[in-house]
């Protein structure tokens, strides 16, 4: 074959493109999982949460979350008497080792687990300049870490403070709703280990999911509904002081 220098140079870009796909390979997809058949959400039953921190530890184990950063965390609220607009909130190490005993000082105390709300109109995906974070067709907000520039726009945009920059990869990171588990028919790591059933994964597109009955019969809220983010983490029995 007559391959001149000119021809070779012309072929090189095409070869580079082809080789990239040879190297990358295709990741193993979950069989029988249809993206369009699911619409994932979570239910958090605040009166059931005992603040043990099992969810925080499980999340860190399952997803290799770096120490000092959290994809989910637990907050302890203290609301004294009528000061509903000024709750005292603490979360020592994200509640990972539980909470130290607190003094009974009147008012009310309770725990609130937090995580990404997997908003259907999420502000974080709208600000990404490169399309590195997105809402999947089954309603989970994910980060493509090979595409993320680490510009931190999304970290600022999230009204719930659910994102951080991983110090090792310098890319944005957040709760994936254990996407690798839920696509295989398992529940999330945090829901799996919750001893009281305070956290439950829910599929809003599944008509047999108990979430529908629960939402009908309980007083349920989302966080910051005035921001119209379409949050899909539903809180049962949540006090008005929770931000």
């Amino acid at each position: 074959m007559d391959l001149s220098r000119r021809r070779l140079l012309m072929l090189l870009p095409a070869a580079a493109v082809a080789w990239k796909y040879v190297e990358a390979g295709t990741p193993e997809s979950s069989p029988n999982y249809k993206l369009t058949d699911h619409w994932w959400a979570m239910l958090i039953d605040i009166p059931k949460c005992i603040g043990c921190g099992s969810c925080v530890r499980a999340c860190a184990n399952e997803n290799d979350v770096p120490e000092g950063y959290f994809r989910t965390w637990v907050e302890r609220y203290h609301v004294s008497d009528w000061k509903i607009e000024r709750p005292e909130v603490e979360s020592p190490n994200g509640g990972k080792q539980g909470f130290p005993p607190n003094e009974e000082s009147g008012g009310k105390n309770f725990f609130v687990p937090k995580l990404c709300n997997h908003c259907s109109d999420s502000p974080c995906t709208q600000v990404c300049p490169v399309g590195a974070t997105f809402s999947t067709p089954d309603g989970v907000v994910l980060v493509d870490k090979t595409y993320c520039l680490g510009c931190r726009y999304c970290v600022q945009a999230c009204p719930y403070g659910c994102r951080f920059i991983n110090p090792k990869t310098n890319t944005a990171e957040k709760c994936t709703l254990c996407y690798h588990r839920i696509t295989k028919g398992l529940t999330t790591a945090c829901c799996e280990v919750c001893p009281t059933g305070a956290r439950q994964l829910a599929d809003l597109k599944n008509p047999n999911d108990p979430i529908h009955e629960f939402l009908r019969t309980h007083t349920v809220q989302v966080l910051k509904p005035h921001m119209a983010t379409g949050a899909k983490v539903f809180y049962n029995g949540m006090d008005g002081s929770v931000r």
């Binding site: 499980a58 595409y147 690798h180």
Partner: peptide
């Protein structure tokens, strides 16, 4: 190649997120 498959992002990233190994077997 998969950019724009489902939206303004890399479609293959979904399968990559699903390929993460599991630590908790489930009860």
């Amino acid at each position: 190649r998969s950019f724009g498959q489902y939206g303004h992002y890399r479609g293959a990233a979904i399968a990559e997120a699903a390929a993460h190994p599991i630590s908790y077997a489930g009860h």
